[in-house]
């Protein structure tokens, strides 16, 4: 089905301004990393949206499976002691 000349898919991450982390903006096709970076610049930053770009081959990403969602993420739900609001501090105590 797919011909050998199909350009691979890349995921694009844009840092919108200094001090922020790169966030996923979308994907694109490009024959290689250099062109992927340039295509990303043209496609995802043409309205001044970025100061830095990453491109990653889509196949290089390993994702968690929705089927494992419960075992992956639910156990973190019942550990409120990880959050500062769990603790009671007398009125008037400062800098805590």
């Amino acid at each position: 089905m797919t011909e050998s000349t199909d350009w691979p898919l890349w995921e694009v991450f844009v840092r919108s301004r200094r001090g922020l982390s790169h966030t996923h903006a979308g994907s694109l096709h490009a024959p290689d990393a250099q062109m992927a970076l340039r295509n990303a610049r043209d496609l995802y930053t043409r309205r001044n949206e970025g100061v830095s770009l990453w491109v990653v081959p889509s196949t290089a990403i390993t994702a968690s499976s929705p089927d494992e969602k419960d075992s992956f993420f639910e156990p973190a739900g019942d550990k409120p002691y990880r959050h500062p609001t769990f603790y009671e501090i007398p009125e008037g105590v400062k800098h805590l």
Binding site: L9, E11, F13, T23, H24, S27, W54, V56, S58, T59, A60, I61, T62, A63, S64
Partner: peptide, 9 residues
């Protein structure tokens, strides 16, 4: 990268 890219790849 572990987060949102999980969408597509």
């Amino acid at each position: 990268t572990a987060g949102p890219a999980a969408d597509t790849a």
